Amino acid sequence: MAEHMTFLPRDRLLTLEEIAAIAERFIERGVRKIRLTGGEPLVRRDVVELCRWLGSHLGNGLDELTMTTNANRLADHAHSLFDAGMRRINVSLDTLNPERFRFITRHGDINRVMSGIFAARDAGLAVKINMVALKGLNADDIAPMLRWCADNGFDLTLIETMPLGAIDEDRVDRFLPLTQVLDGLQSQFTLTRADHRTGGPARYWKLADSDTRLGLISPLTANFCDGCNRVRLTTEGKLFMCLGHEDQVDLKAAYRAGGEALDDAIDMAMLRKPARHDFRIERDAAPAVSRHMSVTGG
């Protein structure tokens, strides 16, 4: 059974009460970690209330509550998230270069992101930076990002681009194998393999003379499915058992049907979790799934 569940608070298609009820069923089945992601979770008006409710289960079935955010609104919420029981947070940040950041995000202001990151650190939240490695775009930013994380006490996780949604020529050309990235980093840094695990697919290295860990998520060069224990619930109430498959179970409909329908639907979903994804990134390959990452989260 999956032990890690990702919720996607983006709009009100699932009510707070429905998310709470579904989460409670998963906690009863052994889920120990819940991560809020998106899209962007902090745009949801009742996200702090949701965090407080989920946080009330910490120490009573739930071991950890985390969030992945773009940090644009993090400065406003960091202390509330800590008060709700959150102790670490993931921030999506693909470069430290302001102009390149605007290009990648299409509109982003890196100063707002930085304010959010340091507000989170000041509130007591451990910060991990998630960086998608993009060939020809931010490859030369990776080593400076690792140095910056070490200087500020943050962890860094590098992620290979995944073929979700439409794949154009640019997307294929941007694929950067993390095996190649790691070779380059090991020529500049002293990295030793670490046993640290967070319940996710990353494999970790320890950076010498610092507390910083480097994580690698390599869906294509080092398939992570053997250790996957995640399922993902969308704001529409669809439960996806795998990022790389279209198979889903409608938990919102099951909940609203009443009776034992929700429990039956969850049990059925767990039995249908596939053994591995179908990701490939080739010029003639169709995407494994038609939906983009923002639909089901990372």
Results as ranks from 00 to 15, higher is better:
A71V: 03
G258L: 12
A123K: 04
D170T: 10
V113T: 11
M67L: 12
A75Y: 09
T105L: 03
A269W: 13
H4I: 10
F224W: 01
G55N: 06
T157R: 15
T15N: 10
T221C: 09
E3N: 09
L185D: 09
C149W: 06
T190V: 08
A265P: 01
A123Y: 03
M1A: 13
Q180F: 09
P201D: 06
R32S: 12
T68F: 04
L16H: 11
A254R: 11
S80P: 00
D264W: 15
M241D: 08
I159T: 08
D94S: 07
R280Y: 04
R232M: 02
E28R: 13
G39R: 02
T15K: 12
L13H: 15
R112L: 15
A21F: 13
F189C: 07
P287Y: 04
L164S: 03
A150E: 09
S210P: 03
K128S: 02
G184Q: 09
R100W: 05
L178F: 00
C228Q: 03
R52D: 07
E28I: 10
S290T: 14
L74Y: 08
A222V: 06
A194V: 07
A265R: 05
T95V: 04
D209G: 09
L36Y: 12
D151V: 01
N70R: 06
R276L: 02
E3A: 09
G165P: 06
K238L: 11
R232A: 02
T6H: 15
